[in-house]
Simulated assay, not measured.
Amino acid sequence: MLTGSMVALVTPFTPQGNVDYAILADLVEFHIQQGTDAIVSVGTTGESTTLSHDEHVDVVRATVEIAAGRIKVVAGNGSNATAEAVQLTERMSGLGIDGFLNVTPYYNKPSAAGLLAHYRAVTEASDLPQLLYNVPGRTCCDLQPELVAKLAELPRIVGIKEATGDISRVQRIQELCGRDFIQLSGDDPTACEFLLAGGHGVISVTANLVPKQMKQLVDAATRGDRAGAEAADAPMRVLHDVLFIEANPIPVKWAMARLGWLGEVFRLPLTSPELESQKVIEQALQATGLLQAEAD
């Protein structure tokens, strides 16, 4: 089951701008030790749009090899071109991953018929389970619950990552698709309520920094323990907010670089955050105890 606390893992780069596989190995080991249930490799947070197709496949392959069956690995396979999504899906199907995360085609604003045809083609390219990914703030395309229900009829569509922050969708999708249809939050600020409303897990940016705490939140919320879930979520709320102060993954990668976990290297057109954003992120790291304040 593709459920639980899942991290939308960043892709680290060397100072020369190549994928840093040594640090990638460290990050995978970190999440295994911290109890994360699954790694989502080369999604939005993994800068999928700036990696070549060969790099995309190689990062997923390396993640699977490092994980060695100790943690589930889900690969991003979406594209705004159906043929590209099909090709990526075919290339990654034999790598040993546990499933795919398939973002809606972005920029070209497909119709409902186009979305159905797109997902039918991509799911036919592999026998592995696939999660829909609805993030209209980035794609200009909103998968309404009624369309999700139609897509759920495709044999390998098993769930959805919902990043709208609309908690009412949890119940509506459950009504249309049934309780077994996996619903994952893709919006950290509303993840706690999403889970308490019946969600099955998260694909989290915040989990890059505090995976153990995110796992605690998910476990408490999915067993219906509101007090426990809110207690786990409260210290993370400052991170939920600042990690989206600029376009993801800029803030989270900068935060990880500030902690010394990886280099502060992005692929253009992404760049380091503005100085004011850096100050806000640093204050959040200090408030959560991840970074010690420097003496004056």
Score class of each variant (00 low, 15 high):
V135R: 06
A163L: 10
Y106T: 02
G94F: 03
Q278I: 12
I245P: 05
A75D: 07
D296W: 14
Q283K: 15
N77D: 14
D54E: 15
A62H: 11
D188T: 10
A191W: 04
L176G: 06
L270M: 10
A113L: 12
A293G: 00
I245S: 09
Y119H: 08
Y107L: 12
H31P: 07
R61S: 02
T36H: 08
L154I: 01
R258P: 02
I157A: 04
S126A: 09
I245A: 10
S272V: 14
L88E: 11
G114H: 00
A112S: 11
E90M: 09
D219A: 13
E146G: 06
L259I: 02
I182N: 02
A38V: 09
T206K: 08
K161I: 08
L151W: 08
I173K: 01
Q87K: 12
N248E: 01
N108Y: 07
P155Y: 01
I160W: 03
E294K: 13
I97P: 03
I245V: 10
R169Q: 10
F244G: 13
A232R: 02
L132H: 05
P235Q: 05
L176Q: 04
I173F: 10
P155R: 03
R267Y: 01
T123Y: 00
P235F: 01
R138W: 09
P129S: 03
P235D: 00
A81K: 09
M1T: 13
V74H: 02
D180E: 10
S185N: 03
I32V: 15
M214P: 07
E146D: 14
P155S: 04
L88Q: 11
N134Y: 10
P269F: 01
E230P: 07
Q144M: 14
K161F: 06
G165I: 04
A284H: 02
I157C: 05
L95V: 01
G4L: 12
N134T: 01
R169A: 06
G4P: 05
V280S: 10
A229R: 11
T222K: 05
R70Y: 05
V280L: 15
E146V: 00
R156M: 12
H200N: 10
D20R: 06
I160H: 05
I160E: 06
A293W: 00
A149E: 04
P15R: 10
C141G: 08
Q213A: 15
E230I: 15
V122T: 06
S168E: 12
N248R: 08
E246G: 07
A295V: 15
P110I: 10
L268F: 13
S5Q: 08
Q144L: 15
A197W: 07
V122P: 07
E124I: 15
M256C: 08
A197N: 02
L270T: 05
G99C: 00
A85H: 01
A117N: 11
L217N: 07
S79I: 04
A149F: 03
E175A: 13
K253Y: 08
C192P: 03
A149S: 14
